[in-house]
Simulated scan of single mutants.
Amino acid sequence: MVSIFTLRIGRLGLLLCGLLACVLTVHAEDKECAIVLLHGKWGNPQYIAFFGRKMEPVCSFKSLEMPWAERRAYDQPYAAALADIDAQVKAFRAQGYKKVLLAGHSFGANAALAYMATIGDADAVVALAPGHSPALTYERGIGRGAVDKARELVAAGKGDERLEMEDVKQGKKRSMRMRADVLWSYFDPDGLGHMPKTAAGFKKPVPLLWVVGTADPLFALGQDFAFSKAPANAKSQYLVVNAGHLDTPDVAAAQVLAWIKNLD
């Protein structure tokens, strides 16, 4: 025999479940913004996650581990990295987010530009202290021999051969070993890593926030290096902050948050 107490508990449970469902429904319908975060060279997802947490008042975020991470050491070509970014963009859209942004630091910013030039499904881009400039390093002779050899091997159908090259990050050099086709995908002076080209090639004119610190080596090149080449958008902004290359995301976080809030 079912007691009055049991009936009351059951009704209370149904009421609580109903209220919880209402709360979940409100949250599901309140998904305005999500950000795919991309870390810099020789880094890891945690390097940019701190910045992501500062965006949480307006946007959810997911920080990806990219092939140029410390642990991965260029284990996949650039096209595969862009496919991973696109998979996360699509995942956020499937979850019901109304806007999906890309935000990258250094090499991650480079990848955000490359993504917009090849796939182009993001609604806005935040480029924090953009880095990785294969044309500039090639001109200076850094890794040039390996890049030239990679070009030859790829053209000969021998992209699976492994090469060693000297990689550089903010003046620090490191010997890296990778497949020739992988090396060429990242270090081709006129390829996916060439930011003036990828900025000019955006698939659509989305808002672009370019953030550079006064102590960043790229600061001297100004807006015309790549930012001005992107398709015009009324919300785009070239933001200069008093920072170096590594601390730009933290220094600029409040201004980036304000910019995102103003996208509507």
Rank of each mutant, 00 (worst) to 15 (best):
M1R: 05
M1C: 05
I4L: 09
I4V: 04
I4Q: 05
F5V: 15
R8I: 13
G10I: 15
R11T: 13
G18Y: 06
L20H: 05
A28S: 11
E29L: 13
E29C: 13
K31N: 09
V36A: 10
L38C: 06
K41A: 13
P45C: 03
Y47S: 14
I48P: 04
A49Q: 02
R53P: 01
R53L: 13
R53Y: 11
M55V: 09
E56W: 02
C59V: 03
S60T: 12
K62L: 09
M66S: 02
A69M: 03
E70I: 12
Y74N: 07
Y74E: 10
Y78Q: 02
A79Y: 06
A79P: 01
L82M: 05
L82P: 04
L82W: 01
I85V: 10
A87G: 09
Q88R: 08
K90N: 07
K90I: 09
R93G: 07
A94F: 11
A94M: 13
G96L: 05
K99N: 07
A103I: 04
F107N: 02
G108A: 04
A109G: 15
A111S: 00
A111M: 00
L113D: 04
Y115D: 05
M116V: 03
D121L: 07
A127V: 01
L128M: 15
G131K: 03
G131F: 08
H132A: 12
S133C: 02
P134H: 08
P134N: 08
P134Q: 12
A135Q: 07
T137M: 14
G141Q: 13
I142E: 00
G143L: 05
V147S: 05
V147P: 08
R151E: 07
L153T: 08
V154G: 04
A155I: 12
A156Q: 11
G159R: 08
G159D: 01
E161Y: 01
K169C: 14
K169R: 07
K169L: 15
S175T: 09
M178W: 12
A180N: 11
D181E: 15
W184T: 07
Y186H: 06
G191T: 04
G193V: 00
T198D: 00
G201K: 07
G201S: 15
K203C: 14
P205I: 00
P205W: 03
P205Y: 00
P207K: 01
L208Y: 14
A215G: 03
G222A: 03
D224K: 09
F225N: 04
A226I: 11
F227R: 07
S228M: 06
K229H: 08
A230W: 00
A230Y: 06
N233G: 04
Y238L: 11
L239W: 11
V241F: 06
N242Y: 05
N242E: 14
G244I: 02
H245F: 15
D247Y: 00
A252Q: 00
A253F: 06
V256Y: 00
L257N: 06
A258P: 09
W259H: 06
I260Y: 03
K261S: 09
K261C: 03
